[in-house]
Amino acid sequence: MRVLIMGGGWFLGRAVAEEALRRGWKVTTFSRGRSGRDVAGAKPVRGDRTRGSDLRRLAGAGPWDAVVDTSAAEMPPRVVLAAARALEPVAGRYVYVSTVNAYRGWPNEPLTEASELHDAPADADIGEDYGRQKAGSERAVWETFGRDRSVILRPGVILGPGEYVGRLPWWLTRAARGGEILAPGDPAQVIQPVDVRDVAAFALDRAAATDAGAYNVVTPLGRETMGGFLAACLEVTGHRGTLRWVPDDVLLRHGVRQWTELPLWRTTAGAWAVDSALAQAAGLRCRPLAATVEDTWRWLAGGEDPVEHPRRAEHGIAPEREAAILAALG
């Protein structure tokens, strides 16, 4: 297999490149080369996907059996459309990594692949509305490659070694600091993060398959909990802290910001109610969350820094604020 990875230097793109090389595939990566680092064994092509001349030059490096697009996280649909149009003559399939945010009902209601998507045109220049961005980008791929040559992957939260957003690294760092730890909500609350390496493997499986479609790429419902997740964080960091579970309504009264101040904590009904049965039937395999926690701690302990990203600063409650809330609870 010959695969082109849009991105390929960090986190998901890097995991896709490494897994493709492990399988013996010929790998080309396309990036500006300003962050991350090239994967040994892959052929890097430098360029900016927002420039038509760079896309035309990239197309000249083909052909490929498949494209796996991991680098359009916050780009408007028109950018994805331009890349799809440039690559359609030289690529057999297009695997686009979207998000559950593309659903109109996320995070307020349970979701399946049949749930309604946001409405956005393929050539839109959308700025701040992330869900509409991704829905419009999905449409750009469908319209260019057709339904029979397009694969759409909709992950929720992706964790694992190399994570740049900082959700799991923050919890691990907090657990390692020890003391009394503000634990959000109910320890039995189901959560559905997926390991970056499992997303990468599934993306390549779909790239090599003959069928197409859209898939929710999350850990199976009911398997992982917030309590199990935080217990794993404590275990790998040496059991230096103790968890103080605080109900949702108490945290809300104290103004704790969901999703960011205490990462992965969200009280809406659909945040962790995404059906991934289709992906599982198609071969998605999700390792235990405890294994992701352990491997991420090992990566952090190795001293390798993630790619700098502004979203990282959004995550984690300040120590003095956490202490004040715990003190107020008595």
Rank of each mutant, 00 (worst) to 15 (best):
F11S: 08
E18W: 01
A20N: 09
R23S: 05
W25T: 00
V27C: 07
G33I: 06
R46K: 08
R46W: 08
D54E: 05
A59C: 03
A61S: 14
D65A: 09
D69Y: 01
R85M: 08
Y94M: 06
Y94A: 09
T99A: 14
V100M: 03
L111I: 04
S115E: 08
A120N: 01
D129W: 11
G131W: 02
G131Q: 04
G131C: 03
Q133R: 15
K134C: 09
K134R: 13
G136H: 07
E143V: 03
G162L: 03
Y164S: 12
R177K: 14
G185R: 05
V190F: 07
P193S: 05
D198Q: 01
A208I: 10
A212M: 06
R223S: 09
E224I: 03
A232W: 09
L234Y: 05
V236F: 03
T237M: 04
L243I: 10
V246S: 11
R253E: 15
G255H: 06
W259F: 11
T260D: 12
R266E: 11
S276K: 00
S276G: 10
R285G: 06
R285E: 09
R287Y: 05
P288S: 09
L289R: 07
A290C: 07
V293N: 02
V293D: 01
W297I: 01
R298V: 13
G302F: 03
G302S: 07
E304C: 10
P306Q: 09
P306V: 02
V307K: 12
P310Y: 14
A324G: 12
